[in-house]
Structure formats: structure tokens, C-alpha cells
């Protein structure tokens, strides 16, 4: 499948062009992207540290999941809202960037994993009796999120 025409179209969108032609727009949007990264990290860590047994311990993981979910969703929305314009401004570079594809693959996997398997493990009553399941769920989540963060950072170096 030839993706070049699609990425070319993205690159030529008015938003992409406006960001490229501006001195400061990329920087400002990127700063919001980083802010989103920080908030996302916080919500993910609340649940994953709980599952690993090294964060909050007295509250059930299900309670932490429910309490932090609006912030998780909010961070993801902020990350998409800032990430998509950044992508549009350099779509052609992304098409040929290995890091970009690592990031997109990890992102797809981690979102699927979080809202299917992780959510089920967190909400199930038996989670506390099965430490191996708990811990491996947290580790998979952290590894996949790190794939997103690694790819994201390395797009900038390519």
C-alpha cells in the first residue's frame, strides 16, 4: 500500500502549512503535548504502581482506575489534539521515520490493551489473589507506554 499520497495530503493541509510557516506555533503546541504526557504519566502510574504493589496499597485498583479515568481520557484527548497538528506539519518526515511507526504501533497496542485486558484485570475481584497476573499486566502497560514515549522523543532526533 502506498501511503505517500495520504501523507502528502496531510502535509499540505492548511494546519500543517500554518505550523511550518510559523516561528513559534510548533514550539507552543509541543509544550502542550509535553504537558499532556506528564498528566498521562501520572494517571497511568497511579494504576500501574498499584498493580505492582509499590504505589497506593489500601485502595482497590478498581477504585483508582475509576477515579483517575477522566484524567486519563482527558490527557489522551490533549495528546491527540496537540499531536495531530504536529504530525500534519511534518507528515512526510514521519512517513520515513522508524521512530514514528514504533510510536504509532505502540500507541494502538497500548490503547487496546488498556481498555480491554488491563481494565478487566483491574476491575476483577480476583486481581488481588493473582499477583503474577497483576504485575505482568502493569509491566506490559508500562513497556507499551514507553514504546510510545521512546518513539515520540526519537521522531525529533531523526
Amino acid at each position: 500500500m502506498d501511503l505517500l499520497p495520504l501523507f502528502q495530503w496531510c502535509y499540505n493541509t492548511p494546519v500543517g502549512e500554518a505550523i511550518r510557516n510559523s516561528n513559534w506555533m510548533f514550539a507552543i503546541i509541543e509544550a502542550f503535548h509535553l504537558l499532556g504526557l506528564g498528566f498521562l504519566g501520572g494517571t497511568v502510574l497511579m494504576v500501574d504502581l498499584r498493580l505492582l504493589g509499590v504505589g497506593l496499597r489500601k485502595q482497590p485498583a478498581a477504585q483508582l482506575w475509576a477515579a483517575t479515568q477522566p484524567w486519563l481520557v482527558g490527557s489522551v484527548v490533549l495528546l491527540f489534539a496537540s499531536g495531530i497538528p504536529l504530525f500534519l506539519s511534518e507528515a512526510i518526515k514521519c512517513l520515513y521515520s522508524f521512530a514514528f511507526w514504533v510510536k504509532m504501533t505502540s500507541l494502538l497496542l497500548v490503547l487496546l490493551f488498556t481498555f480491554t485486558i488491563l481494565r478487566r484485570v483491574v476491575q476483577s475481584d480476583f486481581a488481588s489473589d493473582r499477583p503474577l497476573l497483576r504485575r505482568s499486566t502493569a509491566i506490559i502497560s508500562l513497556v507499551l507506554w514507553f514504546g510510545v514515549a521512546w518513539g515520540g522523543r526519537w521522531i525529533g532526533f531523526s
Partner: peptide, 16 residues
């Protein structure tokens, strides 16, 4: 990169 990734740990936890 470590400086940026650590945002998740530092800013993320203090923000919560």
C-alpha cells in the same frame, strides 16, 4: 530523553 520521560514520573505523580 531521560529528562523528558521523567516528566511522567515527576510531574505525573505531583500532578495527581
Amino acid at each position: 530523553s531521560i529528562h523528558v520521560w521523567t516528566l511522567c514520573l515527576f510531574f505525573g505523580t505531583i500532578a495527581m
